[in-house]
Design a protein around this nucleic acid. Sequence first.
DNA 1: GTGAAAGCGCTAACAT
DNA 2: ATGTTAGCGCTTTCAC
Lengths: 344, 344
Amino acid sequence: MSGKRVTIKDLAEELSVSTATVSLVLSGRGEEYRISDETRIRIEEATERLGYRPDRLARSMRVGRSDTIGVVFPDMTESFMNHVLEGIEEVANQKKTSLMIATSSLDYKVEARNLESLQDRRVDGLLIIPYAPFNHEKYSDRVVKRVARSATPIVVLDRMIPGIDTCAVLGNDRTAAAGATARLLDKGCRKPAYVGLDINISTLQERRGGFYSTVENAGLADVVRECLIRRRDPESDDLRNWLKESIAAGTLPDGFLVSTNGLALKLRKLLIELTGRPPGDGLYRIARFGEDSEYFPTGMMEVVQPHKEIGRRATRKLFKKISGATIPEDQRIERLDMEIRNET
Amino acid sequence: MSGKRVTIKDLAEELSVSTATVSLVLSGRGEEYRISDETRIRIEEATERLGYRPDRLARSMRVGRSDTIGVVFPDMTESFMNHVLEGIEEVANQKKTSLMIATSSLDYKVEARNLESLQDRRVDGLLIIPYAPFNHEKYSDRVVKRVARSATPIVVLDRMIPGIDTCAVLGNDRTAAAGATARLLDKGCRKPAYVGLDINISTLQERRGGFYSTVENAGLADVVRECLIRRRDPESDDLRNWLKESIAAGTLPDGFLVSTNGLALKLRKLLIELTGRPPGDGLYRIARFGEDSEYFPTGMMEVVQPHKEIGRRATRKLFKKISGATIPEDQRIERLDMEIRNET
DNA sequence: GTGAAAGCGCTAACAT
DNA sequence: ATGTTAGCGCTTTCAC
């Protein structure tokens, strides 16, 4: 097809002007530098005619800014990532900034590689949804810490990394969990339980904390129960066994607060299977972080996280840091409220 | 925090060697160029000590390769994009190549901007899932065509762009549609209908074509019906009205082939609402491109597209093009078979 | 009003 | 066995 790329130098030679003149005109500062209209027109015409396109790599190199931000995710398939990404893209687009995306494949070593790789590519900043290790899992945050200490601006989304002091945009998980738990109690639940992943991230600790604070205030500390899931494997029988034992012992909870949507779907299925009754018909209720998909109502209470808005805010915050602004101490962590829905 | 980045020059000065030596050692060609072990060790030590990280931008500039590929999608939220992306990432990772991702926001002008922007950033190649315009929609493929003619290697995924001759990795849509339709007839359907989006892409034309070829071979050409949806708006009443009229006229089909999953979910809901009967219990059957999500069986027949594999193959093909290989004419278009499931 | 030239950090051809 | 140097394409300062 077309041969080599045409450069600013080609344009300059073609028109017998200097590369400086061409550059000035093309960057819209022709007026400012009082380039004559004639020259300007000729340059614009040749640009069009030869199909010149600027080399953004060369430009980045010269100006020390790549107009690119890096996004590091644990996992592509979790659907909430899409919504976060939508928000990120929306504001990145406004700033004419491109996105380099890398996922950690649920492996902290891959995450580390990705972070360094993006930094080496001179992204202007990094948006990170950090990898969340199970409590018993082997894990090192060495690289994350180093990247966080480096000069690259960083904003963390959805969760905080313990021991790393950077900007973050999070959901108001504790309040939401407390609220949802209170709703369960309002509806008559007297034997509440927390079902969650045994993962060491702020988000989940807060959800659990919110649950317990409400339950304890209601004087239910002695009947409350808990099931913590210790592995990623969705085929694991941990939850089923816990439920079976509960039923056998007569301690089946009548209200569940579930930390994540996938886990809640699994819980619901198991409960229907084991008790023959759906949630919300008198035997038990389920509230969970996450929401129903359009065509499949589940009868569970929803705690809706503003994922897209989290993406937007985080990206705006990142651009603020990139532009050199110092974020005041009290604005470093932004918390967004969640909505509780479907309390039937 | 840490000050300026440390460069190869800094290392060279620190050790009183030349930048060339440092560069050679760091790129692992120390042996080859017979750099002494001592020098090599000193360089490696200083690299570590000063926290040197290579500037990939500068490198790209010099070697004319960015080790980055661009990915252009119509839309982030459609769930099949995730799976395609997974496949893409898998092979990109193997090649130590980063991904720049941009979505078209269902707007061909945005798509055009994204394509040019990525090209300006000197991606080594482009993976495109082209924007698919409705048949009556304003649309121009000018930019897409120009990009396709440029020197940048391109592979198109999931659909072909009319009039653009490039490599593509696609599902075997025609065969799959014909197969699913045949299954519907096998199960006893005698009044089949095609329900699809009125969108001008190869994929959907082939699905429709496959449906009709089977139906006509079965001698049902005179009873077959069709509903084409002419707008993106999911709130539109077009489908409901069509069904209502069919019921009133006594021409409600007993077997539907639906072009896309979202549309099928909508159809199913409407049919349950209007007839009081679920799919598969005798009144009607639905087959559609797409699959059930884990916890929500729909009773519809599934045509499962190998999205992840499409991503993988397309990316491998792109790397082949990037490496300069010429793809033989008969291998330019790769078609992957789909699986038909849940034929109850 | 426009041109000449330096330099961003790196690699590779050529010298020594 | 290592150093020198040109140059990737662009921006920007300074000179005329």
